[in-house]
Amino acid sequence: MLVAAGVLAVLAVLAASGVRAADRPERVVAIGGAVTEIVHALDRMDALVAVDSTSTYPPEATTLPDVGYMRRLSAEPIIALAPDRVIAMADAGPPVVFEQLREAGIAVTRVPDRSSPGGVLEKVRVVAGALGVEGRGRRLVARLSADFAALRRRVADTRTRPTVLTLIAAGPGNLMAAGRGTSAEGIVRLAGGRGAVTAYSGFRPLSAEAVIAASPDWLLLTRRALDALEGREGVRAHPVLGATPAARQGRVVSMDALLLLGFGPRTPAAAGRLAERLHPASSGGDR
């Protein structure tokens, strides 16, 4: 009841202001780091009035009002911004918030989230359509399609498919690892690798025994996870990770979490960087 009353109060204030969407350019709230990246790639950052806490790129996104974490949203602060449209990833929530936004007369566009090249292109088409810039969307889709095709050709020339253990969080006795069907597994495959964890789906804590049994060729960590372990030296000194073939041979890669897992316009570049590390012989890079 308190939430509903709060929403009604905000609506009353907006109605009293007399502001109509037809009197000004459309105001948009982006929910999800990939959504904000696509808005940026479509050159429509001028339409944004707020973003969520996962929207850390481009840098100017962090100067906009933050409506909170995408899976724990509240309707009131969004409605208070008087947006015309909210563009949100499909897994944003809770669902009741989007019901309240629609009841407030705010258009809501939900963006499907598939961790694949086709999924990235679908996101672009949906966001471009919501923003009314379909032509820009087609051009971005064409560019990204070419980038993904070039990446596929490059990876096809490699002879090995190294196993990669992806950690999104780390701490004393807590290693949060990616399993099957995750965005982490998706980008590892794009880069010509294989996920080291196949016993479960999603992201879960991994036991010491499971880490040793996985015997990964490479360790892939978000920057936050690497910082929590106090850098590469901390990985090598870790009682569990340090015993893996990856740590013993210095095969540790770190990447920004949104770049790594977001599956947005920067994904071809992120997968390409990872491929250079996984396949140094074919790329001319080093470990």
Rank of each mutant, 00 (worst) to 15 (best):
R152H: 05
A199D: 14
R138H: 14
L165Q: 09
S183R: 09
R194D: 15
A130Q: 00
D217H: 11
P205V: 11
G118R: 03
V164C: 10
T166G: 11
V155T: 02
R154H: 11
L131T: 01
S215Q: 15
R180A: 10
W218T: 06
V124H: 05
V164A: 10
S183W: 11
D157C: 13
R159H: 12
P162G: 07
M176W: 11
G195H: 06
A169F: 08
E185C: 10
S145V: 13
A213W: 06
R139I: 12
R139T: 14
T198L: 14
S145L: 13
R153M: 10
R143N: 13
D147G: 05
G118M: 03
A169L: 07
I212V: 14
L131R: 01
R143W: 08
S215E: 14
V188L: 09
G119P: 08
G132V: 02
A130P: 00
G202V: 01
R161S: 11
E185N: 10
L175P: 00
S183D: 12
R152W: 05
A130H: 00
A210L: 09
R139L: 14
T198Y: 12
V133E: 04
S183C: 12
P205S: 11
A177G: 05
A191W: 01
R194M: 15
R143T: 14
A128I: 02
A178D: 06
A184W: 01
Y200I: 05
V127Q: 01
G137I: 00
F203P: 02
A213E: 13
L144K: 06
G181F: 09
G118I: 02
V126T: 11
L151Q: 02
A177C: 05
E185I: 09
I212N: 10
L131Q: 01
T160N: 10
G173D: 02
V120L: 09
R138K: 13
G173S: 03
A156D: 04
F203K: 05
A191K: 02
G179S: 08
V211C: 11
T166M: 15
A208E: 12
A150N: 08
R136D: 08
D157Q: 15
E209A: 07
D157G: 15
G135M: 14
L144N: 05
V188Y: 05
G179Q: 05
I187M: 06
A142E: 14
R152Y: 06
G179D: 06
A177T: 01
G181S: 07
R204K: 12
V188E: 04
P216G: 09
R143A: 15
